[in-house]
Design a protein around this nucleic acid. Structure first.
Lengths: 66, 66
DNA sequence: GCAAAATGTAAAATAAACTTTACTTTTTGT
DNA sequence: ACAAAAAGTAAAGTTTATTTTACATTTTGC
């Protein structure tokens, strides 16, 4: 699974810290998500999607190996 | 956060065990999700949504307290 | 080119997801 | 009503997400 949080952040002009605060996680969690260090919870996915006004599927993308 | 996995399962005529097998988790994980025992990973949400041909947002719904 | 802001990273700690096993209760079909 | 299947539940164990602290590197604005 990959994601384009970094791109969405750029579009909305938010730093990792900004985004972290808006959705209620630590900055390192955002950083780790962007670097694909781990799979976030559905709760986070929904909050991020809502903030960016995009479907979850447009931000988090399944890959063949998943 | 709530979900309507149980309804989707009924529509597609799948048992908890069927669904578990199709998305690669244990039956208890499906049961626990349906009973809101914990928040599943985004990977599971995407797989379930894809299987049921519905957007993640239609299956997993944010609530006020989230 | 400097300072500040932003990002990357890492280790230790904690919380939460998920599995396995095993048993009980409920539902369904005949 | 009975048997079988499905669903509910629970405890112990493993793995993974997330936090906190702390520091190094990169980017940005002036």
């Amino acid at each position: 699974m990959k994601n384009n949080i970094k791109v969405q952040r750029a579009i909305h002009d938010l730093t990792q810290a900004d985004l972290a605060e808006k959705i209620g996680v630590s900055r390192q969690t955002i950083n780790a998500m962007e670097k694909n260090k781990y799979v976030p919870s559905t709760l986070l996915a929904l909050k991020i999607a809502r903030l960016f006004k995009k479907p979850v599927e447009e931000i988090f993308i399944l890959e063949d190996e998943d």
